[in-house]
Computed example of a mutant assay.
Amino acid sequence: MRKNQGMLTMRDATVADCSDVADIYRHYVETSTASFDYDPPDVGEWEARVAHGRSAGLPFIVAEDPDVMPGIVGFARLGPYRGKTGWAFTAENSIYLRPEAAGRGTGGRLLGALIDKAGPSTVRHIMAVISDEAPASVALHAKAGFVESGRTPNVGYKFGRWIGVVYMHLDLGPESGAP
């Protein structure tokens, strides 16, 4: 899959992309509350996530934009939600951009491509669990059709303070997912 809008190109992630993906995510772990991780996953963990996504039919997409910089400028993926059998047709999305790519529409295009690639036989609902300190991410998901499902104040702790989360979901319809 390649989707080209201007110079932005989106494609399925490969193992070769994992160093760039790890670098992008590391920035958010070290500098923001967009991720509640304290330690960024290493390249090997990202390689395992690419492989798991491929075997589970869950998309993992990267974006390249030579107008911004060479290499990967962002990624979006669907991963398991809660890891229990009853949640098998619900996925959680993640989307991260290099700071240089922010404000160019890349996030919206990546999220749209991710939704388009969500397999109707594997995903019925997409969940977004967003730091309440990330209003741009809430707005991005709302623009893509996600609706707020709830908020939980002060459930995460990072950088010496408590942070809440906003839960949003997108229902892909009754024809998607299981039975």
Rank of each mutant, 00 (worst) to 15 (best):
71 G>S: 02
164 G>I: 00
15 V>S: 03
172 L>R: 12
60 F>K: 02
157 Y>F: 08
5 Q>C: 14
59 P>Q: 13
76 A>H: 06
37 D>Y: 05
33 T>W: 00
98 R>L: 10
121 S>G: 15
114 L>I: 12
13 A>W: 05
112 G>Q: 14
139 A>D: 12
127 M>G: 00
65 D>W: 05
80 P>F: 09
42 D>S: 09
159 F>A: 04
70 P>E: 09
100 E>A: 15
71 G>Q: 02
149 S>N: 06
124 R>N: 07
57 G>S: 09
151 R>D: 05
28 Y>D: 04
73 V>Q: 04
12 D>L: 13
50 V>R: 01
70 P>N: 01
142 A>I: 11
13 A>E: 08
83 G>D: 02
174 P>S: 13
108 G>M: 10
53 G>W: 02
124 R>Q: 11
25 Y>Q: 03
146 F>H: 06
174 P>D: 14
98 R>A: 13
173 G>N: 10
166 V>K: 00
3 K>C: 14
63 A>H: 11
142 A>H: 07
50 V>I: 09
76 A>M: 08
116 D>C: 14
115 I>W: 14
105 G>P: 09
155 V>Q: 01
131 S>C: 00
109 R>V: 15
169 H>N: 09
31 T>G: 06
113 A>L: 13
18 C>N: 01
43 V>A: 06
15 V>D: 05
43 V>F: 04
88 A>F: 00
177 G>P: 01
144 A>Y: 09
166 V>N: 00
5 Q>D: 15
119 G>F: 10
77 R>S: 15
159 F>Y: 12
94 S>D: 01
43 V>D: 02
52 H>Y: 12
104 R>T: 10
164 G>L: 04
158 K>A: 01
59 P>C: 09
169 H>R: 03
87 W>S: 00
85 T>L: 10
101 A>M: 13
65 D>Y: 07
93 N>W: 04
179 P>H: 11
130 I>R: 00
58 L>H: 06
178 A>F: 11
56 A>V: 08
61 I>D: 06
103 G>W: 04
85 T>D: 06
67 D>I: 02
125 H>F: 13
136 A>W: 08
166 V>W: 01
